[in-house]
Simulated assay, not measured.
Amino acid sequence: MTIQAVMFDFSGTLFRLEQDESWLADLTDHDGDPLDVEAQAELMRRMTAPVTQTVQFDDEHRHAWENRDLDPALHHKIYLEVLRQSGVPRVEQAKALYDRLIDPAEWNPYPDTGPALKALNERGVRVGVLSNIAFDIRPAFGAHGFDAYVDEFVLSFEVGAIKPDPAIFRLLLDRLGAAPEHTLMIGDSEEADGGARELGCAFALVEPLPTTERPDALLAALREHSLL
């Protein structure tokens, strides 16, 4: 099967949010004590978990969690609640950390993101980025010059649908002018990104590891589908 288009997830696939020590250095818990290393690591995991609900919510916050990637206001609301339940009770600290989460400049590309996108562009393969997200990620690509290799961005908060809803995959396929049977979806979530298979797309799973621990998973996925 000839692949003529590739759709990529964003978080944990092309880019990853990775804090530096200064982000969490001044955070304090309910008793005013600094968060220890384990607490800091768990905090970041909860902020970047793509699908899994990591804390317990009442009905109001459950609605916000389920719709967070459709509405920036709900995204803000629920992540402040996640931070509060995760040991960051001071609102000003939680807001400062949340601002890091939604700042595209804070997201790091995987080592092979640029090479993979460039290789596809040079082969004439159409490229789309499809993300469940509540803020504009295009500046992250522009900062590295990767935007030149992406034909279409479909972001959930802009289009009113979230993966694995077939509608959001179909929208990107239409914008790319690609048939599903000639399209590959690459992502880090079997549940969300793997939904592309329902339409007949091929799917490659990558692990959302730290960028220093995953040097070439994207290139490997392209090779497996004869795109390199």
Rank of each mutant, 00 (worst) to 15 (best):
D9Y: 07
D9M: 09
S11F: 11
G12H: 09
G12V: 11
R16T: 07
L17F: 15
D20I: 12
D20P: 11
S22R: 15
L24A: 13
L24E: 13
L27W: 04
D31C: 15
G32Y: 07
G32N: 13
P34L: 12
A49Y: 02
T54E: 13
V55N: 10
Q56A: 15
F57K: 04
F57Q: 03
D59Q: 13
E60K: 12
R68E: 10
R68D: 10
L70T: 03
D71H: 05
A73I: 12
K77M: 13
I78S: 02
R84I: 08
R84L: 08
Q85L: 11
Q93T: 08
Q93R: 10
L101A: 07
P104H: 03
A105W: 00
Y110I: 06
P111C: 05
A119M: 12
L120D: 01
L120V: 04
N121A: 14
R123Q: 13
A140H: 02
F141H: 00
H144R: 15
G145C: 08
F146G: 00
D147L: 02
Y149H: 11
V150P: 00
V150K: 01
E152W: 05
L155F: 02
L155W: 01
V159L: 09
I162M: 15
F169Q: 06
L172D: 08
R175E: 13
A178V: 08
P180E: 07
E181L: 09
H182G: 05
T183L: 01
M185Y: 03
G187C: 00
A196Q: 01
R197K: 12
R197L: 07
C201P: 00
F203M: 06
A204D: 01
L205G: 01
L205D: 00
T212Q: 13
L218N: 03
R223D: 01
